[in-house]
Computed example of a mutant assay.
Amino acid sequence: MTLQWTAVAFFLYAEIAVNLILCIPFISAKRWRSVFGLKIWNWLSPYWNKCFFTMIMVLIVLFFDAVREVQKYSGPENMQDAKVNPNVYDHVHMKLFRAQRNLYISGFSLFLWLIMRRVVTLLNQVAVTLEGSAGLQAQMDSAVKATRQHQEDNLMLKQALLDEERSMSVKNQRLKLEAEKLAEQVKVAEETVRKSNAEVEAMKRQAKGLAQEYDRLLREHHQLQNPQSAADKKDQ
């Protein structure tokens, strides 16, 4: 195996190991996000896209080179030469096996490289979603708590209103009873005033009668005095 294909093979093994580590179930997405948020990744982030696309181009070139080698050693000319000479047959099949091996190595390396990037992206998205859902859950809990508090306040307000209505009803009943008592007292006072007015009228009539009787007696007194004075004048 040449140096380039040895490097690609080690790169494939490293990709398999990294993907297996990323797929470990007991490491949460939040933990991976904290790992991806280290300063070293922030330092490497400007070069990450360039490195990613460079590796894609290298792997694509190696993949097409392996495809060319497979087509080269699986052609009918090589098969005809291999049938004529047994040594050539073994050599051709060895070259075809190596070409197919290199094809699988480069193909799986390219595939796992894309998969690894996608897994990292999904882990970050899952972590962000979990953080957002945690924030939404906290908001929902606070909203539920506020709703419960409002419900309790409404119940207390309703209870206070009921108590106020009961107290107002009792006060209204008391005022109604007091109003009835006052109405009775007013009625009694009116009856008393009516009687007093009647007595006053009677006293007025009586006083008027007394005044008339007094005038009559006064006139009679004058009449009695006048004849006596007239008799005295005659005697003189």
Rank of each mutant, 00 (worst) to 15 (best):
S169L: 11
S169P: 00
S169G: 10
S169F: 05
S169E: 10
V170W: 01
K171N: 13
K171F: 04
K171T: 12
K171C: 07
N172K: 15
N172D: 05
Q173N: 10
R174N: 13
R174Y: 09
L175N: 01
L175Y: 10
L175P: 05
K176T: 09
K176F: 06
K176W: 07
K176N: 15
L177W: 00
L177I: 03
L177R: 05
L177S: 04
A179F: 01
E180R: 06
E180Y: 00
E180K: 03
K181F: 11
L182Q: 09
L182K: 11
L182T: 13
L182P: 08
A183D: 10
E184Y: 01
Q185F: 12
Q185S: 10
Q185V: 14
Q185D: 14
V186I: 08
K187M: 06
K187P: 00
V188Q: 10
V188C: 09
A189M: 06
A189I: 09
A189N: 03
A189C: 02
E190A: 02
E191Q: 08
E191K: 07
E191W: 09
T192N: 14
T192L: 11
T192H: 05
V193F: 03
R194S: 07
R194H: 04
R194I: 03
R194A: 06
R194Y: 02
R194D: 03
S196F: 04
S196K: 15
N197A: 04
N197W: 04
N197G: 02
A198S: 05
E199M: 05
E199I: 05
E199C: 09
V200T: 06
V200W: 10
E201C: 09
E201R: 14
A202D: 15
M203Y: 07
K204D: 00
K204C: 01
R205P: 01
R205A: 05
R205D: 10
Q206H: 03
Q206R: 01
K208Y: 06
G209E: 14
G209A: 09
L210Y: 01
L210T: 03
L210R: 00
L210G: 01
A211S: 10
A211T: 13
A211I: 07
A211N: 12
Q212K: 11
Q212N: 10
E213F: 08
E213C: 02
Y214Q: 12
D215H: 09
D215A: 11
D215S: 10
R216A: 15
